[in-house]
């Protein structure tokens, strides 16, 4: 993402590890956070984004450019989002959802949340723990008690091997 300067419709964004990115204002204002800055006239120089690292910001900007190039056609936008997220691992998705949250980009947030939910869907507790590295801090007695209290959530679950 080479920085270009000069044109009035280009904004410069700075990640928390000091990488600079230039992006068309029309694409960047997909972020409500950035749009508010632009509207308040605070977007003249470099816009520091303290909660987003360079790698994630590069990815978010790719998304901003990609989605804003698609005319108002929700189906095409959805298929772009699906394709954009298809090869991302969970670490990247987690970075991205945090960045989308910070930048207030609801369309990206919804898409990433849906992607994560899709991974969890119809999986056993054990599988989800392993997949996401969730540490089980229950004692066996506690776990049995929680399971008993939520017995109804296990009805009709096929994958009972290791839950």
């Amino acid at each position: 993402m080479a920085a270009e300067t000069g044109t009035p419709t280009t904004l410069t964004l700075k990640s928390n590890d000091d990488e600079l990115f230039s992006v068309a204002e029309s694409a960047a204002i997909l972020s409500v956070t950035i749009r508010n800055m632009v509207e308040d006239g605070c977007a003249g120089g470099v816009i520091p984004l303290d909660n987003v690292d360079g790698k994630t910001l590069a990815s978010v900007i790719t998304y901003m450019n990609g989605i804003s190039a698609i005319p108002a056609d929700e189906e095409k936008k959805k298929s772009y989002r699906d394709k954009f997220l298809s090869d991302k691992d969970f670490e990247t998705l987690a970075d991205m959802v945090l960045a989308a949250n910070y930048l207030n980009m609801s369309c990206l947030m919804d898409a990433v949340s849906a992607k994560i939910a899709q991974v969890m869907e119809k999986k056993s507790v054990g599988w989800v723990r392993r997949k996401f590295g969730i540490e089980n801090d229950y004692t066996p007695e506690e776990e049995a008690a929680v399971k008993e209290e939520h017995k109804w959530t296990f009805e009709g679950v096929e994958t009972d091997d290791d839950n």
């Binding site: 959802v97 994560i116 969890m120 119809k122 969730i134 089980n136 801090d137 839950n163």
Partner: peptide, 29 residues
């Protein structure tokens, strides 16, 4: 990593699961 996401985001994710599946996450940790 997932458990350290803000609760608002985790709730967004849980909202996309069925009620049974979302409640089953109580057993995770």
């Amino acid at each position: 990593r997932i458990s350290r996401l803000p609760d608002d985001i985790l709730l967004d994710i849980l909202s996309l699961l069925s009620l049974k599946e979302s409640a089953r996450t109580s057993v995770l940790s």
